[in-house]
Amino acid sequence: MNIFRLFGDLSHLASILILIHKIQTSRSCRGISFKTQALYVAVFVTRYLDLLYAEHVSIYNTFMKLFFIGSSCYILYLMKVRFRPTQDPSIDTFRLEYLLGPSVVLALIFNYTFSFTEVLWAFSIYLEALAILPQLFMLQRTGEAEAITTHYLAALGAYRALYIPNWLYRYFSEGTVDPIAVVAGIVQTGLYVDFFYIYFTKVLRGQKFELPA
C-alpha cells in the first residue's frame, strides 16, 4: 500500500458517500445516470466475488470490497425504489450494448489466463473504464449539473487519477506492471479530462457547472 492508492481508495469511498448524501438530502436522484450506477454494480460484483474463492488479502481489502458491493446496490435501491419518481429514464439514453459488448470482447481477447474467473476480472476492468460514459453523456445532454453532482464526479475521477502514480510507484519499488489495469485505467482517467477542465475553471471558483453552448 502506498499513499497514492490509499488516497485513491479513500477518494472512491468519499465519492460514494457524496452521492448517497446528495440523493438523501435532496430526496432526489436528478442528474444521476441510473445506467452508470447499474454498471458499477456489475463491475463490483464481477470483480469482488473473488472474496468467495480467492485467498484472503487483508481486512482492508475485504472491507472495501464489501463496501463497494453493498453501497452500489444501495444506490440502485435509492434510485429505483425509494426515490423512483425523481429518476428520469428519458434523458439517460446511452446504449448499454455499446459498453457491454466491447467489454466482453476485450475480456475474451485480452486476459491473463483464459479461465472463467480471469475473463470475469478482465471484463470488470474494461467495463469500469467505460461505465462513466452514460453519466457524462447525460451531463452533456442537460448541459449543467448541481454542484454536489460535480463533487461526486470529481472524487470519482480523482480516484482514477491517483491510481496512475500508484502504478508508477509500484513499477519503481516492486518492478511490477499490470498492463490490463494500467491501459484501462489510463483510458478511464482520460474520459474525465473535459469534466475536470470545467470543474477546475468553473465549479471550484464558485460558478455553476455549465457546458459551453
Binding site: R5, D9, H12, D50, A54, V57, S58, N61, M64, K65, F68, Y112, T113, E118, Y163, R170, E174, T176, V177, D178, A181
Partner: peptide, 10 residues
C-alpha cells in the same frame, strides 16, 4: 501469467 500483485488492488 497472472501478475500476483494484482489481486490486492481494488
Amino acid at each position: 501469467p497472472v501478475p500476483d500483485h494484482k489481486k490486492d488492488e481494488l
